[in-house]
Amino acid sequence: MKNVLLLSGNENSSHLFLGEAKRTAETRQAPLCFKAAVMADLTPELLAEQDLILLAPQTANAADTAAMNTQVPTVDIPNDIYGWLNGQALVKFACGKLNLVPAAAI
């Protein structure tokens, strides 16, 4: 199981997206465990637990990502995936970034 952190500037949108991603990962048997957080909630311990950090478009700027100071792969979520809160596309995107193949095709 790989840990994926959804990082956004708005707690409401990240939690909506989190629900969609979790449902899709479970349905598609993707080995992903999603969590959501906002920049203010980040701790070194939380970052160290992650295998991938996905940044919402409003969070994906150089100042924010530089402040994280982590060795964890950090990737911007494409606007078309985030804008539609497309959990299926997010799971597929995360699997691709982690070189994973879910048990059920996405």
Rank of each mutant, 00 (worst) to 15 (best):
L42A: 02
T70R: 11
L98Q: 05
N3C: 04
N61D: 10
L6E: 01
V72R: 06
Q29V: 09
G96L: 07
F93A: 03
Q29M: 15
P73W: 10
L90M: 07
L100P: 12
S14T: 12
F17G: 02
P57E: 03
K2N: 13
M68L: 10
A60D: 14
K97V: 00
A62Y: 04
Q71D: 14
D51A: 02
N99A: 09
G19N: 07
F93D: 06
I81H: 10
D41L: 01
L16I: 10
A94W: 05
K97I: 00
L98W: 02
N10Q: 15
E26D: 15
A67V: 02
I77E: 07
L7R: 05
K22G: 01
R23V: 04
F34T: 14
L55C: 06
V101P: 03
I81S: 05
S8T: 10
N10L: 10
G87T: 13
T70K: 12
N69W: 06
T74M: 03
K97E: 11
A37Y: 04
P31Y: 10
N99K: 09
L16P: 04
D80C: 01
N61E: 01
A104H: 12
L5P: 06
E49Q: 15
L90P: 07
G87Q: 11
P57S: 01
F34N: 09
L55V: 00
P57R: 08
G19K: 01
W84K: 15
K97Y: 03
S14K: 12
A37N: 05
V101D: 09
T70Y: 10
V101Q: 12
C95L: 05
F93T: 07
L7S: 08
A48L: 08
N86T: 01
L54T: 01
G9W: 00
P44F: 00
P78R: 02
